[in-house]
Design a protein around this nucleic acid. Structure first.
Lengths: 344, 344
DNA sequence: TTGTACGCGTTATCAC
DNA sequence: GTGATAACGCGTACAA
């Protein structure tokens, strides 16, 4: 067979009459060689068509430069954009990413984590909600979570409270007769709960007429339409002729809400103001561009990896000082005023 | 330090008074041990809290079970859904995925491939368009591409011609006065070109009045709106009162087109029929659900990984027989009739 | 500045 | 059924 094995340091060493060590140094500490010898080796690499083998390097020095990621799905734009930005940090940090889709399956996610650990990942980023942070913390591995329960681990989250606060304030400034926040029943320990709190606080502060609608929207798109349609019918019965400021918990819902009104009235009636959350593409691409609270996904992703890198670097020191308390970073969202709130 | 190193086969061997070899066999060929001894080792694993190290295994047997993926971005829903489905094949095939975002940068993508090779990936899935398939083929590594130029490598693509054919036929059945296909100028060697060909062939077959509009739509959403708005103005001048069947090259464009009409007329005028391509969420979530050609992304993803696995398995045989010719699989799309084509 | 010798944790080969 | 030994390819004391 003409097919030779892969070229190794040994081959290069023989070819150049250096030792393996010198070849290794060429890669890891080139300044310790004379320029002349560097060139000799450089030429040999080309002649022999050498290709690095990082697996061997891992075994020797323990540094995989792998980060594991578990994301619930890539169907929701929020997750795929976040993953996009996380993966793109390769340019800055050089870490490679092993990615798993959790699909809401707790047992599967445990298996994925085990698999990731067996590949000696140096850190883990978790976006899925299934495994409690206490269990994650017990892995004693650098971990950062994003927008999920995070009591015992480091995290980066949007300032959801601020987002709810801004959205509600925008509606308030337009002197609505009644403010309404539509959301799903959720646990207080997830960051998104802050949206509800922000809404309630503004209403309390300014003593505004308001209503908080917490309703299970179901899984599919159809059930979402049904639920929101019911809500619209109730609102029109309850607040006829009143100017209604509606804050929906995300843009998908806001868009469905808008479309239902459009289908009913051919336009967005003057007595409705709408604002969503996330700045997902649908909010711009809706028939009437929807005001929304934009999460700064690029920044969240950067901070998450950055926070992880810090912990991983710390671990590589001779005498690592692990964090006493988990660090929770918070990123301010951005209010985006579009047409669904811009009439007087 | 109470912190011990990781437990290795050596530790287990000492603990159980077996040899390393036997421990290895316990994992790779358990039947070759007596049940009794299997239990002894099983117990030791628990006692010592052993955790596998697949990096060492890779070095020893060369099987990384890594597949590399380069995807252009995760901003377009098509790519993120595809990645979702590809990653989900872990459950069936057990391969782990190292993912990179190409971002249209050819040089970066070359670096990513080099990096992937250094981690001894066993196969590569390419969705990005920058690197010619000839260059990819030269890597002499199992490769599968999806929806891109694929002359020299294996691929899985949607049957774009069939898609264009179906879309055009649907419009034809509705007895439109004129059929219009809006697309961007593109090279004949990418699969998506088939959409244009399908359109033209149906029009020729049935001798239909038609127009092919190839126009650069620019990068941003705004420029897309502008371009399509111009197109609409031209169409209304050119075909006043005529029943127009419009086939757009993707759902994002179809949605913008629809919204422009909605904003102009408050509804979709009777003389417009619209159909898009991709079955992306926006087609369902549009103010009027848009007819579209659905790509069977789950099937494409499965076939891609499957095709890759075949090649990787072949390579592991003692006397591998590489493919003489690249294999090109084609997946039939599905016509989805929604409201934008369903009036008479 | 360069080389020697050994370790990283597992698998493969060949004995017994 | 089990064990000893040599790979796998690179990093790193330590020595020169």
């Amino acid at each position: 067979m003409g097919k030779k094995q892969n070229i190794t340091f040994n081959d290069i060493a023989k070819y150049t009459n250096f030792s393996k060590t010198t070849i290794s140094r060429y890669f890891n500490n080139p300044d310790s060689l004379t320029l002349e010898n560097q060139e000799i080796i450089a030429k040999a690499l080309v002649d022999l068509d050498y290709k690095e083998n990082k697996v061997a390097r891992i075994l020797a020095n323990g540094k995989t430069e792998f980060i594991g990621i578990i994301v619930p799905n890539l169907f929701l734009h929020y997750y795929s954009e976040m993953l996009d930005k996380i993966l793109s940090t390769y340019e800055q940090f050089g870490y490679k990413f092993l990615v798993f889709i959790g699909n809401q399956n707790e047992e599967n996610e445990r298996r994925y984590i085990k698999e990731l650990l067996s590949y000696k990942i140096e850190g883990l980023i978790i976006l899925s909600h299934t495994i409690p942070s206490k269990e994650l913390a017990a892995l004693s591995l650098p971990i950062v979570t994003i927008e999920r329960e995070d009591k015992y681990v480091c995290s980066v989250n949007t300032d959801n409270y601020m987002g709810g606060y801004q959205a509600t304030n925008l509606l308030a400034r337009h002197r609505c007769d009644v403010l309404i926040h539509i959301n799903s029943p959720s646990n207080e320990n997830i960051p998104a709960y802050g949206r509800i709190k922000g809404f309630m606080d503004v209403c309390a502060e300014k003593q505004l007429v308001h209503e908080l609608i917490l309703k299970e929207m179901g899984n599919g798109y159809e059930s979402l339409q049904e639920q929101l349609n019911q809500i619209i019918e109730n609102l029109e019965l309850k607040y006829p002729g009143k100017k209604k400021g509606i804050f929906l918990s995300n843009d998908t819902q806001a868009n469905v809400f808008l479309n239902l009104l459009m289908r009913k009235y051919g336009t967005l009636p003057k007595d409705y103001l709408l604002i969503g959350f996330d700045n997902s593409p649908i909010s711009r691409e809706a028939v009437i561009p929807i005001s929304t609270i934009g999460q700064q996904i690029d920044q969240i992703a950067y901070e998450a990896v950055s926070l992880l890198v810090e912990q991983m670097d710390e671990r590589k020191k001779r005498r690592p000082v692990p964090l006493k308390e988990p660090v929770h970073k918070v990123i301010t969202p951005i209010l985006l005023r579009r047409e669904t709130t811009e009439k007087i």
